[in-house]
C-alpha cells in the first residue's frame, strides 16, 4: 500500500511537472528512471541530456550506476529526505546488476536539502566514509551558488574518479580497501577474517584447554573463611549514606543534522542502502 501510494505520488508529481525531461521520458511508463531525473526543472534539456550521456558512459564502464533526481519538496514523497531518496531507489529498482549497486544524489529544492544515497555492497564500499565527504565537496560549492549543472557534472566526475580508483584497488577511505576487489566482489577485512578464523578459535581453544587443565589442580590455598562466620555474627555499627551533590551532563543528539545515516543504516561493505545528507 505504502509503495503504491509512493508510486502514485511520484507519478502525479512527474505528470504535473512542466519541465518533464526528455531524457527521462521513456522511463515513467515502465516504472524505470533515467540516470538524470530533473523533476524540479532546474536543468535545461540540453544540460539534462549531456549529464544523462555522461552518467550512462560511467555506468557502462563500472559495476555501479550513478543517478541524479531533483524534486521540489521531498515531503511530497516521504517524511524525510533520506526516506525520499531510498524510496525512489527502491521503487524504480535502480542500480547495477543483481546487487543493484548505485549511488543517487537527491536535491529537494524548497528547503535546499540534498541526500546522497548509495545501495549495494560495492557502491557502499566505494562511496564509504571519506568518499562521501569528497562527493559533497565536489558539488556543494556549485549548488550554493545555484550552479546546478556544474554541481551535477562535478558530482558525476567525482563519482567516476572514485570508481576508477576503486577499480585499481585504491579507495578514498582506507578502511574500504579491505572489503572489495575491483570486480566488486565483497571480502571481509583481513583483521576481521584473522580474528574470526585464527585468533578467535585459538583463544577459544586455549581457553578450553587451560580451563580443563585448571581442573587438574584442586589443591589451592584459601583466602576467605565465609563458613566460619558465626550465624548472626556480622553486625553493622555504622550505616551512613550521606548525599554530597548532584551533577548533570547533557549531550546534544541531533535528530537530523548535517550528515546523518541513511534510512537503512549500514556501513562499509553493507549490502543494503545507506547515505548522508544536509543543506546546500
Amino acid at each position: 500500500m505504502k509503495k503504491q501510494l509512493f508510486a502514485l505520488l511520484l507519478l502525479a508529481a512527474l505528470l504535473l511537472s512542466c519541465s518533464v525531461f526528455a531524457c527521462a521520458e521513456a522511463a515513467q511508463d515502465t516504472a524505470q528512471l533515467a540516470y538524470i531525473t530533473d523533476h524540479a526543472g532546474i536543468l535545461s534539456s540540453s544540460e539534462c541530456e549531456a549529464l544523462e550521456t555522461r552518467a550512462a558512459q560511467i555506468a557502462s564502464q563500472y559495476p555501479c550506476s550513478i543517478y541524479v533526481v531533483t524534486v521540489q519538496d521531498f515531503q511530497s514523497y516521504s517524511n524525510t529526505v533520506a526516506g525520499c531518496a531510498s524510496g525512489i531507489y527502491s521503487y524504480y529498482d535502480l542500480g547495477y546488476g543483481a546487487g543493484r549497486d548505485g549511488v543517487l544524489l537527491l536535491l529537494s529544492m524548497d528547503d535546499r536539502d540534498y541526500y546522497v544515497y548509495s545501495y549495494g555492497s560495492y557502491a557502499n564500499t566505494v562511496f564509504y566514509g571519506k568518499a562521501g565527504y569528497l562527493l559533497d565537496e565536489a558539488f556543494l560549492d556549485n549548488f550554493r551558488s545555484n550552479d546546478w549543472y556544474g554541481g551535477f557534472a562535478d558530482y558525476l566526475d567525482e563519482c567516476e574518479r572514485l570508481l576508477l580508483d576503486a577499480s585499481k584497488g585504491s579507495y578514498a577511505d582506507p578502511e574500504a580497501q579491505y572489503y572489495v576487489d575491483s570486480g566488486g566482489k565483497k571480502y571481509v577485512s583481513p583483521i576481521v577474517a584473522a580474528l574470526a578464523t585464527v585468533i578467535g578459535p585459538v583463544l577459544a581453544g586455549l581457553g578450553a584447554a587451560f580451563g580443563v587443565k585448571g581442573s587438574m589442580k584442586t589443591a589451592k590455598e584459601r583466602s576467605t573463611a565465609e563458613e566460619y562466620v558465626v550465624p548472626g555474627g556480622a553486625r553493622l555499627r555504622v550505616r551512613d549514606d550521606h548525599f554530597i551533590n548532584r551533577t548533570e551532563t547533557r549531550v546534544h543528539i541531533p535528530q537530523d543534522s548535517g550528515r546523518g545515516s541513511g534510512s537503512s543504516g549500514g556501513g562499509v561493505g553493507f549490502s543494503g542502502g545507506t547515505g548522508h545528507g544536509g543543506k546546500f
Binding site: A225, Y228, V229, V230, G233, A234, R235, L236, R237, V238, R239, D240, D241, H242, F243, I244, N245, R246, T247, E248, T249, R250, V251, H252, I253, P254, Q255
Partner: peptide
Amino acid sequence: GEYQVTVTDHFAVHRAGTVEYEKI
C-alpha cells in the same frame, strides 16, 4: 528533546561493623 541528560547523585558512604568468626 535533542539532549541526552545524565543526572548523577554522589554519596559519601560509611560502613562500620564487626564480623565474628569461629574455628578457622
